[in-house]
Simulated assay, not measured.
Amino acid sequence: MTPDRLDDLTADLDPPFAVLDLDALDANADDLVRRAGGRPVRVASKSVRSRAVLRRVLARPGFAGVLAYSLAEALWLAGGDDPVSDDVVVGYPSVDRAALRRLVADPVLASRVTLMADSPEHLDAVDAVAPPGRRPPVRICLDLDASLRAGGGRVHVGVRRSPVHDPAGAAALARAVHGRPGFVLAGLMAYEAQVAGVPDAPPGRPLRGLAVRGVQALSVRELAGRRAAAVAAVSAVAPLGFVNGGGTGSLERTAADPSVTEVAAGSGLYQPTLFDGYRAFRGRPALVFALAVTRRPAPGVVTVAAGGWIASGPPGPDRSPRPVHPAGLRLLGTEGAGEVQTPLRGPGAAGLGIGDRVWFRHAKAGEVCEHVGELHTVAGGRPAGAVATYRGEGRAFG
């Protein structure tokens, strides 16, 4: 949907606000399922952060389960008589004692939520809250480090996640889980961030793209063998209910690994700017936000209120929101996107007056929802109502 049309549909709204194009969301969801090649897609809630949107996506064929980013969030999504999902895997280890107490106090929640572990110390954290004989069994997913290591460990490509890197380490942790009362070994995850989250065709940087593609090809080959060996080693200890891998940027390659039973994705639903630079897919930008012009400090410059919606990760220009309408606007290098105001320069400023809007895309997906209480949805060229974000429901998860 064009920004001009969005201006018409949202004329009564005062910025800042965000708009979700449901037609684009649905098209992106279909494309994720196509790219997953028959593997079920577990929705990464960190990249969505709206229960209504999660429900919409999970109701579509090809999607199953949630990959949450905190235990407190997982309990919220899995709780009650009408849970968002009854299959929620927490993507990161948790030492949140209050959330752990809630988990072990409710057999239903304990059956719906799977904790992540990469060390016996994560099991200790559960036992410290409630010993095995006084709680239901707790489901555990092992986190296998998927980074590429070379040169005897001197070179590390990927994120710093689990210390469990090789099949022997995975099997040792599996034995620690399986042999310990009060725990059930449920699955294994290996997230290849260096493939799933690094664009292989960054705009205007062909040499970097070539280098990234070479490293990613090497990493995919290395991980395929190592992950298969780890799955075999762990399965010799206890059967695995699932093996999860991948992300929006790597669905085809991860799904091609026979040892993987499901893939994860979330960012591709909204298609933020960091995911514009992939050769394998072209998503439709589904989520945009509007800010109001409040100053004209100089010829060719306008200032909008707020705007400092910076994406997490290594600081840099690619983490800043991108003005997309009117065309011909850019951030000032000396100020960037500010918490209370953001100046913009360029030919697009000439036609803007006080009170006019500038539309932006965020660098990441769900982080937009930390700044707004609702997403104003459109579908078929018409307003389709507003849905609450986590923030709008009074929830914030670290």
Rank of each mutant, 00 (worst) to 15 (best):
A186Y: 07
R319Y: 08
A327P: 10
T389A: 06
E192R: 01
W76M: 13
M189R: 01
G398W: 15
A24D: 08
Y390I: 10
P297S: 05
A256S: 11
L144K: 03
R56V: 01
P321D: 01
V302P: 01
V237Q: 09
A379S: 15
L223I: 12
C369L: 11
P107M: 09
G338N: 02
L67G: 04
R56L: 04
D124T: 14
L109A: 07
G381W: 02
V260M: 00
T254W: 05
A59G: 14
S162Q: 03
R330T: 12
V108D: 14
L352A: 00
G247Y: 03
S47A: 15
A68T: 06
L22A: 06
D14K: 15
G392S: 09
D31K: 10
A36H: 05
A36D: 06
G197V: 14
P199S: 02
P167R: 03
S94V: 04
A238V: 03
G246S: 06
R149L: 14
D4S: 15
R55I: 01
R208A: 15
A98P: 11
L22K: 04
G333T: 11
D166H: 13
G79H: 10
A146T: 12
A72S: 15
D82A: 13
P15K: 09
Q194H: 13
A190D: 01
V234H: 05
G187E: 02
T261A: 07
A228Y: 08
R101C: 12
N28C: 08
A298G: 05
V263W: 01
D31T: 14
S111T: 07
E262D: 07
R56H: 11
A52D: 13
V195Y: 03
P206Y: 00
G169E: 10
A236V: 02
V372C: 02
S111F: 10
R42V: 09
F242P: 07
R319I: 09
Q341P: 09
P258I: 05
F289W: 11
G300T: 01
A230G: 09
Y390S: 09
E335N: 11
V88K: 09
V324E: 14
E252W: 03
T303I: 10
P199N: 00
R361H: 06
R42F: 02
A286L: 03
F397R: 04
P16G: 08
L123S: 07
G152V: 04
L210T: 14
T261R: 06
